[in-house]
Computed example of a mutant assay.
Amino acid sequence: MTKHTGHTANDAGQWSGMVPVDDTALAVTDTGGAGTPVLYLNGQFATQGYWRRTVAELGTGWRHITYDERARGRKSGRSADYSFEAAVRDVDAVLEARGVEKALVVGWSYGAVVAAHWANRNPGRALAAVLVDGAFPYDWMDEAMEERVRTLFRRVAWLSPLLRPTGLLPRMNAEEMAVSNIELGRLSLESELSPVLDALTVPTRYVVASGTSFGSRGDEQERIRTSLAEVTARNPHIEVSAKVPSNHGAILKKDAAAVARAVREADTARRAGVDGQAPAD
């Protein structure tokens, strides 16, 4: 069992502390309680604080577990490994550390792809999945885009000393951030991501934003989202819960209620066994 370090807890069962994994440690918060465990997976360079509105919308009837990925936030440590596979391993490390065998996973952006992969690899442990404006199989990464990504992160590098102490930028250099983003693009290729989504057997709900995201141009983001129609047509376990007016970056702030509804829908579906499964607790 993974050990906890530097933790705090209260009488209601809420816990916060550091969970060691590989060569680093992750800052984790667990509300505790007997409700369905919900594990929240952040955007690529975001923090667990982005989920506070969704947590508030769902309320105390759920067990909310959030954490900051490697080198993200103010406390999670740096690592020699910022790969996607490390991100998927970290899901298991956090759940193990908190003594949670099964969880409903909710991921935004990069976290949506992590959630899809984890649910696909762990059908007996994933109760359901909610994918928030991410995990769209689309061929948007090519050589020209790779160079554009590297240029973008080189340009924002000067902000790092100012923003890293606030937790708004990860403690990663420009090349590490670019490599992570390029890897996400490759994992999102239709040939790579579609088989993962097609194989999902747990209730899965999408919440889809509108408009642009950081670094996108014109209608790029909307064109990427069109791939979802084929995904839902092929896999009856996957549905779109909502298409909301806010853009990619604002969706967790402005449409937390829609995300919370999708969590409730997915949990209701898995309890009812509507996807051909036995109802699970």
Rank of each mutant, 00 (worst) to 15 (best):
M1L: 13
H4V: 14
G6E: 12
W15S: 06
S16K: 05
D22L: 00
T24R: 04
A25I: 05
V28L: 07
T29E: 09
T29H: 05
D30W: 06
G33C: 09
T36V: 13
P37L: 11
P37C: 12
V38Y: 02
L39K: 02
G49R: 11
W51N: 00
W51G: 00
G61L: 08
W62K: 03
W62R: 08
Y67L: 12
A71C: 10
A71V: 04
G73Y: 04
R74S: 04
K75Y: 14
R78C: 04
S83Y: 07
A86H: 09
A87C: 12
D90F: 00
V91D: 08
L104D: 00
V105D: 00
G107N: 03
W108G: 01
W108Y: 06
S109W: 04
V114T: 15
A115E: 04
N120E: 15
N120V: 12
P123V: 15
V130I: 13
A135Q: 03
Y138T: 13
D139A: 06
D142N: 15
D142Q: 10
A144I: 14
A144C: 04
E146G: 12
V156S: 06
S160Q: 09
L162T: 15
L163M: 14
P170W: 00
R171C: 02
R171F: 01
N173Y: 02
N173P: 03
E175F: 03
E175M: 03
G185E: 09
E190W: 15
S194A: 15
T201R: 09
R205F: 14
S210C: 03
G211W: 00
T212P: 01
S213H: 11
F214C: 09
S216D: 07
Q221W: 11
E222D: 14
I224T: 11
T226H: 04
E230P: 01
N235R: 05
H237S: 10
E239F: 00
N247C: 08
I251V: 13
L252M: 15
L252A: 14
V259T: 07
V259D: 00
R264A: 15
R264L: 12
E265N: 06
R270T: 14
A272E: 09
A272C: 03
G276D: 10
